[in-house]
Design a protein around this nucleic acid. Sequence first.
DNA 1: GTCTATACAAGGATAGAC
DNA 2: GTCTATCCTTGTATAGAC
Lengths: 193, 193
Amino acid sequence: MNHNQSREKILLTATRLFCLRGYHATGMNQILKESGAPKGSLYYHFPQGKEQLAIEALTISRNLVADKLRGNFKIADPVTAVQQHLQMLAEIFSSEERLQEEWFSIVPFGLMAAESAFETEAMRKACEETFFCWEDIYIQKLEEHGYSEDMAKSLSTSLIAMIEGGIILALTQKSGQPLLQVKAIIPNLLNCK
Amino acid sequence: MNHNQSREKILLTATRLFCLRGYHATGMNQILKESGAPKGSLYYHFPQGKEQLAIEALTISRNLVADKLRGNFKIADPVTAVQQHLQMLAEIFSSEERLQEEWFSIVPFGLMAAESAFETEAMRKACEETFFCWEDIYIQKLEEHGYSEDMAKSLSTSLIAMIEGGIILALTQKSGQPLLQVKAIIPNLLNCK
DNA sequence: GTCTATACAAGGATAGAC
DNA sequence: GTCTATCCTTGTATAGAC
């Protein structure tokens, strides 16, 4: 197995497990085992160990979500785009388990973010940047659609908070229902420029 | 030290650490050390170990927040009450560190909830019940103020999601600012019966 | 009720052969 | 690039004295 193949497999597995189960709950052995990557290769590819893995995982997660958001915003108005995003998230929780696992790698970012706040500063920063990255995408779209600067900022922060919180409720209830409730109030929320 | 004193000290310390740092990140030794409770007493008071401690901590957290919500709702209309709650939360993040520590025991419930979803079913259930408990408080208040049943339900779920998500953003940014952004859009959100 | 000592597993990480 | 073996620390939990 060549360099990039196993490195990538390890990293994607780590991203999924960190996001889904959490940073502390995920062991290096588990990552290695589930990735199916060669056993001796972990510390070759990631010399700084678990923290390096976490920071790279955060970047992966950030970009996956950012791409998804930009894609939605390109073809729809703010209300529709945000609702599409929530619909997609809700459906993940209703899908079969194997499919869930695959998608969950990009979904519950909040768990890692909360944990990171008390790990190293580098990890905290990576999470902070992620939220700012997503926020900027929202802000830009909302301003394009005529929202004031202040309103766009408040709404963007609130939308991200709602979605992250909604994901936590969905995990806890093992159901996409909470995300659909959030989806339902999006028109009201965004009806105030 | 008598029975109840050390039991309570252990439990309150556990609640704070679990909520703030997470379930997996918190060790039994740390709980013992920070609580200042007698070293041999932990498994005497909590024979089922860490999980028992977690479930009892979840109950503590649930009731502290529920009492706070009910108190706010008793003296104010929905918009004002929710804004007061967010203001209080935001101020915690601006207060001095020692005071933060004390309050944080009731604040970042979402971290434990997300972790619990993949621990034992008993822990997951305890989190689920907590969210339902809070939701009922919101729903009742909103219905009293003329919101339809459906709208009250969607709004309640969304408010909880927003607040939990807002707390995660606040932790990540080490600032109460995100919670104030959320506070700012509450009037818009609740202006639709 | 509380203490000390200890068992036992799992965690992250490194060394050195290949 | 990968493997095996190993180290050290930490974590949970128990036993048995006091």
